[in-house]
Simulated assay, not measured.
Amino acid sequence: MSADDGEPGLKLDAYLPYRLSVASNAVSGLIARAYQDRFGLTIPQWRLMCVLADEGAMTQGQIVTRTFMDKVTVSRAAQGLAGRRLIARSEHHADGRSHVLSLTAEGRRLFGEIAPLALAYEAALISGLAPEEVSLLRRLLGRLQTAATALAGEGEPPPIG
């Protein structure tokens, strides 16, 4: 529907998926420059390292599920990190086609160096928000992610009108 027929049209700056994407890109771009310039890491590599630091050893498939990154992105990130000896690959005892990824000692050291910087960026980004606003934002983002996952599982877009 358009503004011409009296119905409200899509206004990009008011469209929540667009605003979320733009905000995410702005934050990711800011942080990506710091990780790339100082540590030679891409955002997917950093996310992979964070997941392994947080969750412990995982398969690439588990990382795909946990991060919502596609298989190719995870595979490339893992290859780059393995090449720098920041992660190790080992055989999956239950599935010979799969590998388990884990941080190496060097990967844990680098993660320990970067994590305070990541937290400082987060603190700077939310410094203009009250603690209850940050808490609300976290809850709302979680609910939006849950709703998006549920909608994706339905396989069809929601009905129009």
Rank of each mutant, 00 (worst) to 15 (best):
A26Q: 15
G40R: 08
R138G: 06
C50W: 03
L86S: 02
V51L: 06
A77S: 01
S75V: 00
E122D: 14
G9V: 14
G56H: 11
P8V: 14
G128T: 15
L86K: 00
S21T: 11
A123C: 05
L129S: 06
V74H: 00
G29R: 11
V27R: 12
L10Q: 10
G80R: 00
I126Y: 03
A57E: 15
L129K: 08
V72A: 10
L137D: 11
S127H: 15
E91F: 07
I31Y: 13
F111H: 12
A3V: 11
T104G: 01
Q79W: 00
W46A: 10
L101S: 04
A105M: 02
V134D: 07
L86P: 01
A77I: 00
P116W: 08
P44L: 02
L16H: 10
L30P: 14
G80F: 00
A32T: 15
M49K: 00
H93S: 06
E55K: 10
P8C: 11
P8D: 07
E91G: 13
M69T: 01
T73R: 00
Q79T: 03
R97A: 13
D4H: 08
R19A: 04
D13H: 10
P116Y: 12
E113Y: 01
A32R: 10
D37L: 04
L81D: 00
L101F: 10
Q79C: 00
P8T: 15
L52Q: 10
L125T: 11
G107D: 01
Q60A: 15
D5C: 13
M69H: 08
P44D: 05
E132H: 13
N25I: 15
D37R: 09
A57F: 09
L140D: 09
G80M: 00
S127M: 10
P17N: 03
W46M: 03
A14M: 15
R38F: 05
Q60C: 14
R89A: 09
K71A: 08
W46C: 07
G112W: 09
Q36F: 13
R47D: 05
M58C: 10
L16M: 14
A123H: 14
V72G: 01
I43E: 02
K71Y: 06
H99Q: 14
V27G: 01
L101D: 12
L137E: 04
P8G: 10
Q36C: 04
D54F: 02
L110I: 03
D70N: 09
G29K: 15
H92W: 08
S90G: 09
E122K: 15
